[in-house]
Design a protein around this nucleic acid. Structure first.
Length: 680
DNA sequence: CGTTCTCGCGCG
DNA sequence: AAAGCGCGCGAGAACG
């Protein structure tokens, strides 16, 4: 495997490349339709494009008002028409696609790798889905077009044809063909592909372009997604084998106990029924329910059956399959991060292997984990069971992170910001007391936990601190006492109604009165701007109106977008309440484009998360510029892969701690580790 | 039988 | 006056 595209993605020196004459270079919009035995959703674009069965059915393009569909791209002839060839290879313009990782992968593996077309340099790629996302529009082309009311919209009928033609069909006796080849369908597919290109183009033009800094961030994002993160395929396969073995043993046991009534751990309804028949009524088999039941008196066989369920109920083990499926031949998993995947704040979302929700794991000692990895690779289930007994799935969950690692001879360097959201929150509301505490190195989560439990700070355990953290953040975003009780219960902390009320209304809100004021100011500011169209400044935040959109200008220069913002009559109006509420259009339940509503505390949360995200984004730029190639990042943490003798953790933390100009006075601290395997 | 939804889980 | 929220994924239920 060539390393070519994986090393590219150097930051663009200019946001808008200019031709020799100084005019912006043209953008050609392209879209491929393909078919393959590989499932795109399961394996991701890079493995999909590299799969030998993957074929290009057509490529549609649009440039300067002209469009076309190139079919029969085989590499044997000059089968792209001249216009496409001119703008792709002659004019060296920008090349835009919707979710461009797919087009990049196809271009690299098939157009260049198989057909010898010239590669397209990293700086030329653009992504209309990234633009849509940065404008708080749906990433999905059809939904974004509909949300904007564009004339050119997604062709749903054509989409069905595409889905049919892109997958192998089941050969029958009458028709042994592997693919759907109906000529009428082929024409419909070409039409669909062309429509898509036109819709993408229209969407792209309807969106604000990324501001210069964001464009740089996006390019680094592309570099990270294209570079990928190396995974330990040997350990992954070992874990998969061990899980299969554990499962086989456990299911045999389950079958025996239930006398054949339950034959797999996934049969929730059957197991509930069987347990019921034994005289134990359970509402469901969620982890907490099973744990609670196991804590009480139980018939022995019910206890054993639930134990098996607990053992196999861990969904985290599925992630090993995902890592295996999405790893390319060079052992790297790519396209694992989605730029502006979080609609409101612009934070990244995870994709595929979803690194953002790996369990923290109960085993943390790197040395112990190293030993476990050796046993896993040796498929030594006996030793693992001897040491860890029925905790074996906890062991496997703890090893997930470590399967992301540096390739042989290299290291990972990682650091994360401590309590970044809390710091941004107090910075944003200019709470000088809390800022001083942070500057003095105090831990506000511990402080809060001490208040909740009425204990001394030095007696706060990590678990109690976790509740303190949830309290600081949740209560900072307006959480009421009822939700606080539920949240605390989730951490195994029963709170009386009275205590919860005291914490929320007598401890938190008076102590953080500046936060409470910020809620009010942001609410008023947003309302004023929506009503009058005038700018409202709320400290470091500015609201502006642009057409139907409410823009929240962040200190970084990025703006959060609230599409279709207006004040609407309050639902559930009550006496004494404001008659209206702030509302806007966004992705609601089931990712439907719907009218949502907001209020001061929620706007506060949006701003805080967005600012924390911008701090991380700025750090990505600095870290990458210092030649630490980033392989992944998660909200407040950056992981880079370096040669053994390159750089230092100290320098890495310093790079993260250096603040952009706009973040003056924001106390940030980064801490991390250096090692071969990813860990918390 | 395949698709869509709903919910719970895990992270931040 | 009353409000934490945001992701993606997997499994099972509901739908056609």
């Amino acid at each position: 495997m060539v390393s070519r595209p994986y090393q590219t993605g150097a930051p663009d020196p200019a946001a808008i490349p200019l031709s020799a004459k100084g005019a912006p270079v043209p953008t050609i919009t392209i879209d491929f339709e393909t078919r393959s035995e590989a499932d795109l959703k399961t394996v991701g674009p890079w493995v999909y494009a590299a799969h030998p069965s993957t074929e290009i059915l057509c490529m549609a393009y649009e440039v300067k008002g002209k469009s076309g569909v190139c079919t029969g791209i085989t590499g044997l002839t000059r089968d792209l028409d001249w216009l496409a060839r001119f703008y792709l290879f002659g004019a060296e313009g920008l090349v835009e696609a919707h979710n461009v990782q797919f087009e990049r992968a196809i271009w690299f593996h098939i157009m260049t790798g198989r057909f010898n077309y010239r590669n397209i340099a990293a700086w030329r790629w653009r992504d209309s889905a990234a633009k849509a996302a940065a404008n708080a529009l749906p990433r999905a082309l059809g939904k974004a077009g509909a949300a904007l009311g564009l004339d050119v919209q997604k062709d749903e009928g054509g989409r069905r044809i595409m889905l049919k033609m892109s997958k192998p069909r089941k050969p029958t006796k009458h028709n042994p063909a592997t693919w759907h080849e109906d000529p009428a369908d082929r024409w419909r597919l070409f039409e669909y592909c062309l429509d898509d290109v036109l819709a993408e183009k229209a969407l792209s033009e309807a969106c604000d372009p990324l501001v210069a800094f964001e464009h740089k961030v996006w390019q680094i994002d592309q570099a990270i997604n294209t570079r990928g993160v190396y995974v330990d395929l040997d350990a992954i396969q070992g874990a998969i084998d061990i899980i299969a073995e554990v499962e086989k043993k456990a299911v045999r046991k389950l079958e025996k106990i239930t006398d054949g009534e339950v034959t797999s751990a996934g049969q929730v309804a059957r197991l509930v029924k069987w347990v019921g028949d034994q005289g134990v009524e359970l509402p469901n088999l969620q982890a907490a329910t099973v744990d609670a039941a196991l804590g009480a008196d139980l018939p022995d066989d019910v206890r054993a059956a639930l134990g098996v369920r607990r053992l196999l109920g861990k969904t985290s083990v599925k992630k090993y399959q995902a890592m295996k499926a999405r790893a390319s031949a060079d052992g790297r998993v790519r396209s694992h991060l989605i730029y502006c995947g979080a609609e409101r704040s612009g934070r990244w979302a995870g994709s595929g292997i979803q690194i953002q929700n790996y369990p923290r794991g109960s085993i943390k000692d790197p040395v112990e984990l190293d030993n476990i990895f050796e046993l896993i690779k040796a498929r030594d289930l006996d030793s693992l069971e001897m040491i860890y007994d029925d905790k074996i799935t906890d062991v496997l969950a703890s090893c997930l992170r470590g399967c992301l690692r540096a390739p042989p001879g290299r290291d990972l360097i990682a650091a994360d910001y401590s309590s970044i959201e809390a710091r941004v929150l107090v910075w944003l509301c200019k709470d000088r007391r809390a800022l001083k505490l942070f500057e003095a190195g105090a831990d506000l989560y511990v402080d809060m936990a001490a208040s909740i439990y009425s204990i001394r700070p030095e007696d706060v355990t990590p678990n109690k601190r976790q509740l303190g953290k949830v309290a600081i953040l949740g209560l900072g975003y307006g959480m009421g006492s009822d939700t606080f009780i539920n949240t605390a219960k989730g951490y195994g902390v029963p709170l009386s109604d009275e205590l919860a009320r005291r914490v929320v209304y007598d401890v938190y809100r008076p102590k953080y009165d500046k936060v409470v004021k910020l809620w009010r100011y942001l609410e008023t500011g947003a309302r004023t701007t929506i009503e009058t169209g005038r700018e409202s400044r709320v400290g470091r935040i500015t609201f502006r109106k642009d057409g139907g959109r409410l823009l929240m200008d962040l200190p970084s220069g990025r703006s959060l977008v609230y599409q279709g913002a207006r004040l609407r009559p309050r639902r559930n109006a009550r006496r004494g309440a404001e008659a209206t509420e702030i509302s806007y259009m966004g992705l609601g339940i089931n990712k439907q484009w719907t009218r949502l509503y907001s209020y001061g505390a929620k706007l506060t949360e949006n701003a805080v998360q967005a600012i924390a995200r911008d701090l991380l984004a700025a750090a990505l730029v600095r870290v990458e510029a210092a030649d630490y190639p980033i392989v992944l990042h998660l909200h407040d943490e950056i992981v880079a892969e370096v040669d053994k003798d390159f750089g230092s953790l100290k320098e890495f933390c310093k790079l993260m701690e250096r603040r952009p100009k706009w973040a003056k006075g924001l106390p940030v601290v980064a801490e991390g580790w250096r090692g071969e395997r990813f860990r918390k």
